[in-house]
């Protein structure tokens, strides 16, 4: 067993876990932050994307112990004082989600896309950048629209 401590959504958390515990397991099972999902075993689907020190990471492909001393943000940490983050709002406004399972990873990836590519995103860029997030419901059409709109409103 090993002790881990990190900041999750702005709060310090600690835990004692087996070395083999993945970050996603620590979030879901120890912290009960079940918004981060597990959709595959091969780092393909992106349902588990969170931000570690400000960049997107597949939390199913990182050990909890590797996140020691980092700042982790999950889908639960985006909305401030009850207001949706602009990207969350854009997904709602543009019907960018159906069953909601891939959605947390999509939103976390989307914010990372904006952080790296700016607020004016063309469709091709968004589609390429979504390579690591699979959705079965939406056909991506409205996800792409959501991210373009979310990028704009994140720019203020």
């Amino acid at each position: 067993m090993v002790n881990v401590s990190m900041s999750v959504n702005g709060k310090s958390v600690t835990g004692e876990v087996e070395e083999r515990t993945l970050l996603v397991q620590f979030l879901r099972e120890n912290l009960r932050l079940t918004g981060t999902h597990i959709g595959c075993d091969t780092s393909q689907c992106g349902a588990c994307v969170v931000h570690v020190d400000g960049v997107s990471v597949k939390s199913c492909t990182m050990l909890a112990v590797q996140a020691n001393s980092t700042e982790v943000t999950t889908i639960e940490g985006l909305a401030a004082n009850g207001d949706l983050h602009p990207m969350q709002q854009a997904f709602k406004d543009n019907h960018g989600l159906q069953c909601g399972f891939c959605t947390p990873g999509m939103v976390m990836s989307a914010i990372d896309i904006v952080n790296r590519n700016g607020n004016d995103l063309d469709e091709t860029t968004v589609r390429k950048e979504l390579e690591g997030n699979i959705c079965r419901c939406t056909g991506y059409h409205n996800i792409v629209k959501s991210i373009q709109a979310g990028a704009k409103s994140m720019g203020g």
Binding site: R28, G35, T74, K92, D93
Partner: peptide
């Protein structure tokens, strides 16, 4: 706009494994 979206967008969905 969908009534169900807020919970899915904020990680408050409640799937079986949750």
């Amino acid at each position: 706009l969908r009534k169900e979206d807020n919970r899915f967008l904020t990680g408050k969905g409640n799937y079986t494994d949750d």
